Amino acid sequence: MTPTTQHLRAARYTWGGDEFLFVEIAEAMSLTANFTANAMASALAARTVDGIVDICPANASLLVRFDPDVIPPGSLEELVRDIEHEVAQLSEQTLETRIVEVPVWYDDPYTGETVARFRKGHQRPEGTDLDFAAEENGLPSAAEFIRRHHSSPWLVSMVGFVAGLPFMFQIVPQEEQLEVPKYLSPRTDTPPLTVGHGGCFACVYSVRGAGGYQMFGIAAAPIFDPAQRLADFEDFMIFFKPGDIVKFKPVGEEEYRAIQAEVAAGTFTYRQAPVTFDLQRALDNPTTYNRDIMETLNGL
């Protein structure tokens, strides 16, 4: 990531059938491209335009579903292009969001058992996914990889693949990002709440199912609650939203079990706090900015 705001070319607009407008902001993920996607989505939602059914920001793009009988495609495109121009001209590139602490039991037995079952589809049949990740990133040990994984915040760049699964992008300079390839052959099983990694993206698997990301640990609390039992899901069954910032907190077995008991009792709530994400500060001085933004949780 360069130390100044990256300038993006004009977005590419295409249509998906009669109901979808796809806006490709950039070909590659970056903090700037993702900020633009979220800022455009927020601005479009604030207009409360009749005929717009859904607005879905992604890593470096925006998808708008609309009813062509209510808003003509040409009118929608003109509106979204105007918003793109407004976002590009912003003097302060900030986004009102929140930082959330996600407890993770790294190197846990659940993902460990699954890792052992699927070594034939892995680049490195011996060892574990954590061993492989450390080696791929030139780090001396799995413990150092875990430290690097939880010592900086992650931006939720999009939510998808399965219900409620967040893709997360590390808020560090590009040369410091943790990068690990996916499995050579996808697994047919992944434990729910697995903390995974593929390419430059981290994720938390919201439900049990197939997957190909490297597995590093397991989150202690749900991120998808269809029954909406827990207070954090009172408004919506999916916890994460694009633009959220995540701070992973390493926990041991005892704390993991205690959190699981709170979840079962219906009393668990995530530690979270409102923050203003400042794109320019994140690009100019990520080390200082990351420390400041994570310290927002310390006063809770």
Rank of each mutant, 00 (worst) to 15 (best):
P73F: 07
L279S: 07
Q170V: 02
V156Y: 08
R147E: 11
R81T: 03
N34R: 05
D244F: 13
P191T: 14
A220R: 10
T269H: 14
D67S: 02
L165D: 08
I223R: 08
M237S: 09
L8E: 00
H197I: 08
E253T: 14
V104K: 04
K247N: 07
L300Y: 11
P166C: 09
E175A: 10
L76Q: 03
G160P: 01
K249Y: 14
Y205S: 06
L155V: 04
P140T: 14
G243F: 01
K247T: 02
A227I: 09
S157W: 07
H7L: 15
N137A: 03
W15C: 11
L193D: 04
A134E: 06
E92D: 14
P103C: 08
D278H: 06
C203N: 12
S75A: 15
G17R: 03
G17K: 04
K249V: 15
Q260S: 13
D232E: 12
D189G: 13
Y183H: 01
D244A: 00
T48E: 15
M168V: 08
N298T: 13
K249S: 13
T48K: 11
S91H: 15
R124N: 08
G160W: 01
S157G: 09
P68L: 08
G127N: 02
T94G: 05
K182Q: 10
K182F: 05
T114W: 05
R257C: 08
A33S: 02
A60W: 01
P286T: 06
T267N: 12
V70C: 10
L139D: 00
V162Y: 02
Y289L: 01
P140H: 11
T14M: 12
E234M: 13
A26H: 05
G211N: 04
P274D: 13
A46G: 14
D292L: 14
A37N: 01
G299L: 15
F201A: 02
E77C: 06
Q89Y: 11
I218Q: 11
G127Y: 15
I146Q: 04
T276K: 09
A282E: 04
V64G: 01
A142F: 10
Q123I: 06
S42G: 13
F169S: 03
T267C: 15
A88P: 02
L44Q: 13
I218P: 00
K182I: 10
V251K: 03
E126Q: 11
Y13S: 08
Y13P: 08
G121K: 00
N290C: 02
L279E: 06
P72W: 10
L62K: 01
D69R: 02
A11K: 01
P250S: 06
L230C: 09
P68C: 02
T97V: 11
I52T: 10
T114I: 02
G127M: 11
E262T: 03
R291K: 12
M158T: 09
